[in-house]
Design a protein around this nucleic acid. Structure first.
Lengths: 365, 365
DNA sequence: TTTGGACATAAAAACGTTTTTATCCTTCTT
DNA sequence: AAGAAGGATAAAAACGTTTTTATGTCCAAA
């Protein structure tokens, strides 16, 4: 019978218990004497509320240490306040270097999101198919408001799917389809061209390319640049010396051993990343060949340790953490409604010549 | 005037528009003829609902592809369905190897959470103070239901804070205070002891320890093990050969150069991780000293590439990704209410002898 | 026949927001 | 002086859940 009365008293006792915990919009309303609607509008900066009122409410919010409850906001607005990142799961022993750049990517993204309302959430995937499924699930369940991923394939189904469903995303890498979407990339074609041309100018004719899986867009880009260097020099591309596989140190080593054992072996190698480079150097060590003496090596940097290899290796340095920051920044802007066409960046990695190899001028044979 | 009517019609049109999008509990209620309360209970497995009813509802949920809305759940329950991880931000160029193990940690955690309701969220921090603040913010704003972090200090304020506020967490590493909390750790004392003892048995007396920042708990553990090896052999510990700093390759190189230039230099080095090891090898290269000939080196693995160093280095292999899985598993169990005292693991890394150094038996001098 | 549990389900309240709609004053127009 | 227009705020509805409370119905005990 006395339901109402009972409830009231319960509510009251509950309130007094929890009062200390976290002030809500209701607390602010009670404190300032305004309605919760006005409080909400004042805090969101709506122009309809009077300046004086806003000031009072903001002041109260500050003194009470009010923090908007993200769950309430999320439910009402349908947003999640999350930015999702797809990250490869590296399970196999011996492949620990795989995805090593993700620390830096995440680090960069995290910095970009630092002063936003968004939190970073990470979703592991195992293979291309899994990556697609995960992306789709994020969209379908609206588990995040935006998505970042790398490992773009030439014909990446994630990009089609995301473009079609108009879900905000930024990719690290470009696919080969004429779609408009936000992306950050490194000019792999240019880098491979430059590296190869440098070696050709140094007199090399048999050049190996230790490359990534050909399903990956950037692997194709590098082959393009590699070929173009030969073409522009009027030479035949040493396509038989292109090895593709995973990015492991083991792959680098095995490839180098195989290629150097060929009847017509390479006199120079271009390596996809530092992991494979380390493998290549390990192979050269076993074969008693020395970099800069018997063969030349140019590599891509990922964790910037080529300087400490023995000998130091000439590389294209990719500031991955900066790319990560760009990814985060672009995603924020994309989620804020900015046009995807304007959110693109393709950077040229910086060549760091570490070997006294006088490549680019020397005529070796 | 016709407000009610108008609203009804609007609601109807809205519903028919959005019907396709995502079925809610209300949709299920309408479809099955039960109330939303019953539907909710049926789906959550509450025992009060009749078996027949439950079956019908579950069937409907399946055919309609119902997925519980996490935002609704979150608001109602006060949970976030997130597991937070604190990750160091690696900003400076030259420190790209820093935190390299985080890819694997995250990978492991991600796998552990795969079949749970929890999503992984990553929070970057810059230094000890920032890490604490971030942890506190997560607790205060209940931005997550649980927390994982590493880089534990001997006197880590995060642990006090989290224990006191009874917030579920698991740390990678232990502090030096007698508190009960869930953790995963490597037996660093044992590993340092074993490595040092092995070198002592090999005849070394002047042994260097390339160590981490002494504020870190595991840095102290390693010093303890290092000292114990000397103690048990009845020798004086070469404390003057302990270098502490960051985990960068540069630090490894600089330390090795400095130590080897001392009047009474080390004849062997124990290295904290592969990054510093690479630096040490680089230094040895510059000084024309060879591992296994002039000096011996034992290191800790993190990304399992020591096998490819020139020469390959004997290491303690730490299966970081597995530790990550444990962290995730423990956190899930902790969040489910399990006792923290039962959620502890200290693993002994596996010694992988890669050098033909016959250490442990040889008497070098 | 009543009373009073069980049992199964429905109704209602609540979580904390945002947003739409309603209400109340002023002030300006005519 | 009456009405319109505008400004400021309040009220109410809604987002999708879970959980507490209420409402029946049936059957055994009195």
């Amino acid at each position: 019978m006395l339901t109402l009365e009972k409830q009231r008293s319960m509510a009251a006792s509950k309130k007094s218990e929890h009062r200390e915990l976290s002030p809500t919009i209701k607390t602010l309303a009670a404190h300032t004497g305004f309605s919760i609607a006005t409080v909400s509008k004042a805090l969101r900066g709506s122009p309809v509320v009077a300046q004086q009122t806003r000031d009072a409410i903001v002041a109260a919010a500050r003194t009470l240490g009010y923090q908007a409850n993200i769950r309430g906001m999320a439910l009402r607005t349908g947003k999640t306040y999350r930015a999702a990142v797809l990250m490869p799961i590296t399970s196999a022993a011996g492949y620990e270097w795989d995805g090593v750049e993700y620390t830096q990517i995440l680090s960069g993204i995290s910095q970009a999101l630092e002063n936003s309302d968004y939190q970073l959430s990470v979703h592991g995937f195992r293979d291309f198919g899994d990556a697609f499924d995960t992306a789709r699930r994020i969209v379908d369940q609206s588990a995040a408001d935006g998505l970042i991923f790398s490992g773009v394939q030439a014909d990446d189904p994630r990009i089609d799917m995301l473009v079609e469903s108009d879900f905000p995303f930024v990719s690290l890498g470009r696919c080969r389809k004429p779609l408009t979407y936000a992306h950050v990339d490194v000019d792999n074609e240019w880098a491979a061209f430059t590296a190869t041309a440098r070696l050709i100018a140094g007199g090399h004719r048999r050049i190996a390319l230790i490359n990534a899986d050909r399903r990956l867009s950037y692997a194709l880009d590098r082959i393009d640049g590699f070929s173009r260097a030969f073409d522009e020099a009027g030479l035949a591309t040493s396509m038989d010396l292109v090895a593709d596989g995973d990015l492991s140190t083991r792959f680098g080593r095995d490839s180098a051993l195989r290629l150097l054992g060929l009847p017509s072996p390479p006199t120079a190698l271009v390596c996809i990343n530092e992991s494979t480079t380390l493998g290549v150097l390990s192979a050269l060590g076993s074969l008693d060949r020395r970099v800069g003496v018997h063969v030349d090596v140019i590599a891509y940097d990922d964790i910037n340790v080529s300087a400490y290899f023995t000998p130091p290796i000439t590389t294209f340095y990719q500031p991955i953490e900066l790319l990560g920051r760009k990814l985060g920044e672009f995603l924020l802007r994309r989620m804020a409604g900015e046009d995807a066409a304007k959110l693109t960046m393709v950077s040229r990695p910086e060549l760091i010549g570490r070997q006294p190899d006088n490549l680019g001028g020397r005529n070796r044979r």
